[in-house]
Design a protein around this nucleic acid. Sequence first.
DNA 1: CGCTTTTATGCGGTTATTTGCATTTTAGTG
DNA 2: CACTAAAATGCAAATAACCGCATAAAAGCG
Lengths: 255, 255
Amino acid sequence: MVVIDLPQERREMMLRELRRKGKLVAAELSEQYGVSEDTIRRDLSELADAGLLKRVHGGALPLTPSNMPYYERDKCKQAVKSELALAASSLVKDNQLILIGGGTTTAEIARNLPINLHATVVTTSPLIALYLAEYARIEIIMVGGRINKRELVTSDAEATAKIRCFQADICFLGVCGVHPEVGITSTLYEEVDLVRALIEQSGEVVATVTADKLGAIAPYIVAPVENLTHIITEKQVPQETLAPYRALGIQVIQA
Amino acid sequence: MVVIDLPQERREMMLRELRRKGKLVAAELSEQYGVSEDTIRRDLSELADAGLLKRVHGGALPLTPSNMPYYERDKCKQAVKSELALAASSLVKDNQLILIGGGTTTAEIARNLPINLHATVVTTSPLIALYLAEYARIEIIMVGGRINKRELVTSDAEATAKIRCFQADICFLGVCGVHPEVGITSTLYEEVDLVRALIEQSGEVVATVTADKLGAIAPYIVAPVENLTHIITEKQVPQETLAPYRALGIQVIQA
DNA sequence: CGCTTTTATGCGGTTATTTGCATTTTAGTG
DNA sequence: CACTAAAATGCAAATAACCGCATAAAAGCG
């Protein structure tokens, strides 16, 4: 029985325990902190309101650790992404060194490369590595490191350092937001350095962005938008949305 | 029998298992989670209503059967390998550092680890990394390098060097041949150094070998057989075949 | 310090979920 | 068509969640 004086302290301990164990059981917490289950329930619903955990019958669970894994994420846009990927893949030429970042869109690119492309691909995604294994003439370099289970990529310092060992012809970014002034943004802090490395180690920098990501802003700024050399997006996007990017010299392709 | 306190937690685990194994059997789940089949059925229909799986007579299937790729080389031995993998997975304990080499058998181990195992796994196989991503409490370290498309692993000098940075509790080898005198052998020269590294950086060394690989000799010698601490093989293997290994102090398990 | 206000907590009563069991219905199989 | 296993249904017990309300400690204040 742990003695806790501050209610807020108790809640923070509960969050830590959630991260450690992956679940919280109301009855156990009540025992553990020596307070009634009502109090625990109140704590949990407060934390749930704050968006820090998911309330379930009997306790709480993490928001979505690997619940909605990656390859099941918006399947609805599958057709669109496939179109974009096809357009993206037409940018690569034989004998290039290609960097491919993580993300559902970039994985789609890996599946849509020309079947007899002769090239070397460097990737941080095990899924992309598997897709590429089907190509007879593509050399695959897998960048190692700790796997981020949410995004299914290696995105730690080791991976970033490894990326900096390459000087690529072209790279494909999976980005969370692209805005003319704010720039390229990401929802994951740990990916920021990695994406920066991808951009800096590559001649051409291609972002394949679905319509909803154009003009979107995610919490973490990766780089100014003029670092991109190509943007590939949907046909339906109006020209005035694209004009600012074109004005910066970015080649915008609609597929 | 996994103890689950939260109903919602059980459902999420079922979803993860579905993604790992590609199917769910109601009767098995009932056994596994220690609840009645009624409860399992209710869980499944709830998940089906939420559009997370497809309900079928006797259990459930993924919505998109071909979404999670099945790179299984020989499906014929699937059942056997699954048995061996289950026996192998019982050797791991919580909080261990585990090395897993490449191969179809070792991939099967990755799919059959205890569902709530808390451990760190180092692997050279992107496929294994993907399988492990379904485990909430397993930390995955992907060893990078050039991908060997035949075996779907990284097996170059870079990968070998990286493996040598770890001191693991246990490692699982995918081997091509095990012979009492000739030792552990491989059909791929480039894998030899890597497998040696796996053996040397690990306390326990486990080889899961189907019957046809016992006594088999492949072209390249990796290490003497006494480097193994455990051999896991099929039930049908006669005792006289296993005696030489046991005489060397290797623990032989038949599953 | 006295006083009020806010916050945190526990308790009783009620409602909602979950679960297992018995029974009936349906689906798969030869 | 008959047999078996799985699914659906109704029901009751156990447990968790919810709703006020009372109490008490903490905080704010003249």
